[in-house]
Design a protein around this nucleic acid. Sequence first.
DNA 1: CAGCATAAGACAACGGTTTTCATTTGCGGT
DNA 2: ACCGCAAATGAAAACCGTTGTCTTATGCTG
Lengths: 146, 146
Amino acid sequence: MHERTRAEWRATRQRAAVLRALHACDTFVSAQALHAALTADGVTVGLTTVYRTLRLLEASGHVDVVRDSDGERLYRPRPDDGHRHYVVCRECGLSLAVDSEEVERWVARIARDIGFHAVDHTVELTGVCARCRPASGGRRDQWSSQ
Amino acid sequence: MHERTRAEWRATRQRAAVLRALHACDTFVSAQALHAALTADGVTVGLTTVYRTLRLLEASGHVDVVRDSDGERLYRPRPDDGHRHYVVCRECGLSLAVDSEEVERWVARIARDIGFHAVDHTVELTGVCARCRPASGGRRDQWSSQ
DNA sequence: CAGCATAAGACAACGGTTTTCATTTGCGGT
DNA sequence: ACCGCAAATGAAAACCGTTGTCTTATGCTG
């Protein structure tokens, strides 16, 4: 179907660096944070290149993307075990993959029930992890659960 | 507890207009679209005011907010029956409220299981509604379901 | 090693949203 | 009814993340 006489991806120092930095992170990171981290490590990579690389990774399905409340894009390498939803701690950024089969099933049923096709779903969970839990343990009720 | 000698919200022509326009919409709308609609109706309201009003409504929980793929904020008055999740048609913008009890339960359980507190959830569904369904019915497989 | 398409990088442009600040205007007090 | 002030408005500028442009550099294939 598809001749492979031409490599679809050129191996460059910069892309390697972005990939390395991305995998070194244990939470979601923004393009800018990634760029800052690289710069701090003495690696010279243009911000534009970081953005471009992340977009490529996104398009090819190698990273998961969420949006934080400011509309900023946050990236994380996609694990190969199929998990694709996370709970992210609002305080420290700790993110855990969660089992989402139930949601997948729910989405599929909804789609069928209302006659929609090609239904795509975004599920983002944020909270406060056990470690960051405020001492008082009580006064945390302002979160508009949308 | 709280003296009401001072009104917390001043009634202005502009706010009334924004509220009216918002309720006149039957789908999610952006701040800019709302402003354009108002202007088209001959109502003079500054774009800044539209943004400000929407933010107030958001903060006070009177509207639901979603983000489209460009990061734009889309607003819709929150119905009082408790429904808070929607399926939005990518083609025509038609949006239907869906029953989300299952997801609410799922979220609550996840939160308990992993020890997170104050877990907030964002669930956004997009698809193609029956009316907009492409005639061929088949070639729609590029949607990265994240 | 040559040729060339792809990638990098600096910088400008873009678009949505928020801030600033001077001016106007509800609204409670008198 | 009128005053006075804090709150609200509006135009323009600032912001900020992201994307486009264009020139230069560099992998890769032949």
